[in-house]
Simulated scan of single mutants.
Amino acid sequence: MTLRITTQTMAASATRQLAAAQARLADAQDTATSLRRITRPSDDPAGAAQAMRVRAEVAANAQYGRNIDNGTAWLTGVDAALGDATRFLDSARDAVQQGLNAARTPADRIALADVIDGLRADLLGRANATYLGRSLFAGTSDQPAFVDGNPPTFTGVAGDAVHRRFGENQSVRVDADGAAIFGTGPTSVFATLDAISAELRAGGITASRLDDLDSARATLRTARADAGARLTTLEAAKDANQAAKVALESDRAALEDVDLGTAVLDLQVQQTSYQAALAVTAKTLQPTLMDFLR
């Protein structure tokens, strides 16, 4: 049986081949222009699903990075405030030692009491240290940690904490408990400084005040060491976050992006293929007598 191929059949086949070549050329042009392997989900459904998952991980990792930066700023503020507070108490201890010297005159002790009052005010200021308007020592409260009084009153949320998440199941506390560090009521460090000032103005001071200050200084040093350990945790998390960022970007690029050289080469191949198809079609579909008789 002889199969008869008509001119109309050849024309239809050539048209389909040209359309397919043109579509491949258009895809190659889109890829070379956008440098994206996947420009729509239909390009690669499986790859698009993987790319969406990786993009979600990239977004989560970026948020963790912002949390780490914010937490680092909080803990840096806490560390600075506790360092200042420790120096204030060191100065207060020196003043007490001078006040215990029997050679000091009443005027000298009054001057030392003024120094203690100034250190108390400075200490209260550092106890109310803030970052972006939030108290570093008041827990989740948006109010100052301490309101001045005799002694100052703790107005934060005792035992509450501010945390920052830096991993899927990882978080760290970024504030400090002002009530535990500075004390509350008559046992607070502020009450101790008030008592020292009063005793100096009265003309005498007991050596036990040195022990009170040493205890307060030890509490501050412990709190500062704890803040430093948490800051170290965030520094390590920062390094891990940056490494994850690089790895995730590499995964995303492998799924979505194309190499510029590869895209240009493919475009040239598709252009050559399309031009060749046009030339072959032109030679194959020669004009017939019917074309001239129309």
Rank of each mutant, 00 (worst) to 15 (best):
G118D: 07
G228E: 12
D44E: 14
T9V: 02
G71R: 13
A279S: 06
G178S: 06
Y64C: 08
V54P: 11
R126L: 00
L112D: 02
H163P: 02
A56L: 12
L260Y: 15
F190Q: 08
A161F: 03
T281V: 00
S215F: 01
G156H: 09
R87A: 09
Q286K: 03
A243H: 11
A80W: 03
P144K: 12
T9H: 08
V162G: 04
L89V: 06
S188Q: 03
D79N: 09
T7W: 01
H163N: 13
Q170I: 02
V258G: 10
D43W: 15
V280P: 01
D94E: 13
T192H: 04
D194E: 15
L75F: 05
T206N: 15
S135T: 10
D259L: 10
S13Y: 01
V157L: 15
M290W: 07
P151I: 09
Q63E: 15
M1L: 03
A179S: 13
A145I: 07
V189W: 05
T2D: 10
L193I: 05
Q271W: 08
M10R: 14
D214K: 06
D117Q: 05
R93C: 04
R294H: 11
S42I: 12
N61D: 09
F166C: 07
N241G: 14
I116C: 04
A85R: 06
V174H: 05
L265N: 09
L293V: 06
R201C: 04
